[in-house]
Design a binder for these strands. Structure first.
Length: 763
DNA sequence: GAGTTTGAAACT
DNA sequence: CAGTTTCAAACTC
């Protein structure tokens, strides 16, 4: 904000323009050199205070690997766009850049966004990118703290999307710088940079120019750049990797994607800011990409106002996010919807595909559902950021940390988005939701969020007019009592809360409250259930991983429910009780505290007796719709011969789908090998629909047994075992006639529980 | 839909 | 840290 950067920035730019070399470059391409400076500053401003420690992310390698491809693609894209667009983009980009330079804080940002929107006409070619951006899940934005990054992730669409991602990153950085994130280290550095900026700019320009020339051969460019650049890049990648690590897998994936294109630039920017030395390849990329980026970014901003990811502790991001959000508020709703939907889906898809496949391949044109929109905002949790942070703290991988409840939340929100047709206003507000970091991870928590009743409503209504929402009367939705608040989501219309302060309007209050709560308990917004297995990983490993593999962080304290009802967070989360639990008379079907998980048929029987009626009834009601997770769980259950089991199972697990969660975890992984599809489960469901889901859906009840025997995915078996009904099936006396598969599955379950690596992060 | 039960969250 | 209160979901009728 206050930083002297502006003046500095402004001068260097002019110099660039003046220089013959720059002129030459400019003539060649519309790219604006000026941004590079900002980028560096922004990075510095960003300083990534939060991410620093997280280098553990497994994706890092991917980033590097993909870098070349992406860059190459990006460059190609840029070329194509430039050719097609001609000079149109340049002016726009210039506007954006100029605005950015001038802009100090949020207001400026808003202006920028407006400008972008206004200029859309010229930018239309970019709209494709915008679409991609629209597809980006907000959540990712929150998580990363950089909505743009999310936008990048959304790039499910073609190469354009990739370019967008890079641009998004760049812009994000720029915005952050604009917003005044500089406050921290940058200020000091900036002083240093003051003189150096010019040099840096030149270098960046030169490097950028080189890229331009070399476009087609990204590899060549990299090689030419020299060892220094490489080292820098590595560092950069590391930094981003660390950031990514915090984020849930999907987010991470998105980030990676974006980073791959733009991250290098960001990293470089940071380095440059700090060292004010050499512009790196990334900067080049940024420059090259910038023109398109500007347009895209503006569009993205419009689409993703959100972002305020608010990790309670990490203000730099939050501030940025806020700025973004506010911006978003001014933006058009329709796009938001699109973007959100697309994002969610794309994110899920991308996440699924990403690890194995480079994003480019992923880009299925997942057609974002334009329809859904509103719920999105709410669904995306502000707190997701917190989750990510928590994951950092814990050192557990993001994916692992996912809580079913959060996932459900996400799913629900997604569903709501799709289904809800609420007024655009709501959408906007929702979009503002500060943090929705790890939607993916959150799936576990979702369970808690989505009460069966609500779900029923949602399901029954078909469109799901009502997203699952809270019903708070006295907490003002500013306490963890509130599911929405706990999930990091703003309350939405469907909520029947009174005196609700958990709305974008009261963002400040919400954030402050969150901080308070987090100060009390840093993991307050972290997923309550820790999964040991990543969804994606598990495909092969699934057999061993059951819901039991996950455990409630703190454990339950049940006294009367015997951990057989949703009162029990462990049960609700679809996980077994653990040593951490202080429950009495634990009969948790997912695993008792004492370690005897499902084995005891007796326990199951008890559970069954206790819950069968309700379950069956509910299952019937619910059966019609369910989140992916639920379906998955059901499917898993479906393995059971009778339909009742199927329906019952999900129900039994809980409408929220905890069982599904667990199942999801396994299923999701198995189905698509998705990473942590959980959160986006829905998206995955909609888009790709996990194989399992489809498979099961198609499969008739009678067929199920065969399926079990044949595929007998471990996850499924586990699920069965988890479900009380499955137990029924399993009991020896019953089993006599039943196929061995069932029994075996059961046995597996039992074994699996003890074997669970439990909480240890895979990667 | 109202009322009860339950256990987490919040408070002391 | 333990005990109590508050709260909203889960559950029952």
């Amino acid at each position: 904000m206050d930083t002297p950067e502006r003046s500095q920035i402004g001068t260097p730019v002019s110099k660039f323009e003046e220089s013959p070399f720059s002129n030459f470059i400019n003539s060649l391409s519309p790219i604006n050199p000026t941004k590079t400076i900002h980028v560096s500053q922004t990075f510095g401003s960003l300083s990534f205070t939060s991410p620093p420690s997280v280098f553990t992310s497994p994706h890092v390698s991917l980033q590097k690997d993909n870098k070349f491809l992406r860059r190459h693609l990006v460059s190609d894209l840029l070329k194509a766009q430039l050719q097609s667009d001609g000079g149109n983009k340049d002016p726009i980009a210039e506007e954006d850049t100029s605005a950015e330079h001038q802009s100090d804080g949020l207001p400026d940002v808003q202006v920028r966004g407006e400008e972008g929107s206004g200029s859309e006409g010229s930018a239309k070619p970019l709209e494709d990118t915008s679409d991609c951006a629209t597809e980006l899940p907000r959540e990712l934005k929150y998580d990363s703290g950089s909505p743009r990054c999310k936008a990048v992730t959304s790039s499910s669409s073609d190469t354009r999307c990739e370019t967008n991602t890079s641009t998004a990153l760049i812009q994000f950085v720029q915005e952050s710088s604009i917003q005044g994130s500089f406050q921290t280290e940058l200020n000091s550095q900036e002083v240093k940079d003051g003189n150096e900026e010019e040099a840096c700019d030149w270098q960046s320009l030169i490097s950028g120019s080189s890229d331009l020339f070399i476009f087609d051969s990204p590899n060549v460019t990299e090689t030419s750049k020299g060892s220094l650049q490489k080292s820098q890049q590595q560092e950069e990648t590391n930094v981003f990797a660390s950031l990514l690590a915090r984020f849930p897998t999907e987010q991470a994936y998105h980030l990676q994607n974006s980073l791959q294109l733009g991250s290098t630039g960001c990293n470089e920017a940071l380095e440059t800011a700090q060292h004010s030395t050499q512009p790196t390849e990334e900067t080049e990329l940024q420059q090259t990409d910038q023109p398109s980026e500007n347009l895209e970014i503006t569009s993205v901003n419009e689409f993703f106002p959100t972002d305020s990811g608010e990790k309670p502790g990490k203000q730099p991001f939050s501030n940025l996010h806020r700025g973004l959000r506010r911006r978003c508020l001014t933006f058009e709703m329709p796009r938001m919807k699109r973007s959100i939907d697309g994002v969610l889906f794309s994110s899920s898809l991308s996440s699924l595909q990403n690890e194995d496949n480079p994003p480019s391949s992923n880009r299925q044109p997942i057609t974002p559902r334009v329809e859904s929109s509103r719920c999105i905002f709410p669904g995306i949790g502000l707190h997701l950021n917190a989750l990510a942070a928590a994951s950092k703290d814990s050192g557990i991988s993001n994916t692992e940390m996912l809580s079913p409840a959060s996932q459900e939340h996400l799913i629900n929100s997604l569903a709501c988005l799709r289904n809800d047709e609420g007024p655009a206003e709501n959408v906007i507000e929702n979009a503002e939701d500060p943090s929705q970091t790890s939607v993916f991870a959150a799936t576990e928590d979702l369970n808690s969020n989505s009460p069966k009743k609500k779900r029923r409503k949602f399901e029954t209504t078909g469109e799901g007019e009502s997203c699952k929402r809270c019903n708070c009367k006295k907490s003002k939705c500013l306490k963890l009592y509130c599911e929405c608040f706990a999930a990091g989501v703003y309350c939405v219309e469907p909520c029947s809360c009174l005196d609700c302060f958990n709305k974008p309007i009261h963002e400040d209050t919400v954030l402050a409250t969150r901080k308070q709560i987090e100060s009390r308990n840093p993991l307050a917004f972290a997923p309550k259930v820790i999964r040991t297995s990543d969804s994606a990983q598990e495909i092969g490993e699934d057999t061993t991983r059951t819901p039991a593999s996950a455990r409630h962080k703190r454990g339950c304290n049940c006294k009367k429910s015997n951990c057989l009802k949703k009162y029990c967070e462990c049960y609700q989360g679809g996980v077994g009780c653990s040593i951490n639990c202080r429950c009495e008379g634990c009969k948790n079907a997912f695993g008792r505290k004492d370690g005897s998980s499902m084995i005891g048929t007796e326990v199951e029987m008890d559970k069954l007796q206790a819950s069968e009626k309700s379950i069956l009834d509910r299952s019937l009601d619910i059966h019609g719709f369910q989140d992916d997770d639920d379906q998955n769980s059901e499917f898993a259950i479906p393995m059971t011969p009778s339909r009742l089991y199927r329906t019952s199972v999900p129900l039994a697990t809980s409408s929220k789908g905890k069982p599904p969660r667990s199942s999801l975890g396994t299923i999701g992984s198995s189905s698509s090998g998705l990473h942590s599809v959980d959160g986006p489960g829905r998206s995955t469901f909609l888009r790709t629909q996990s194989r399992i889901d489809k498979h099961f859906q198609s499969v008739s009840v009678d067929e199920i047994p065969a399926v079990l025997q044949n595929s007998s995915p471990p996850s499924i078996s586990l699920k069965k075992t988890l479900s009380p009904k499955s137990k029924r099936i399993s009991p020896p006396h019953h089993n006599n006639g039943q196929p061995l598969g069932l029994r075996s599955s059961r046995k597996l379950i039992l074994q699996s529980i003890p074997s669970f690596p439990s909480l240890s992060p895979r990667r």
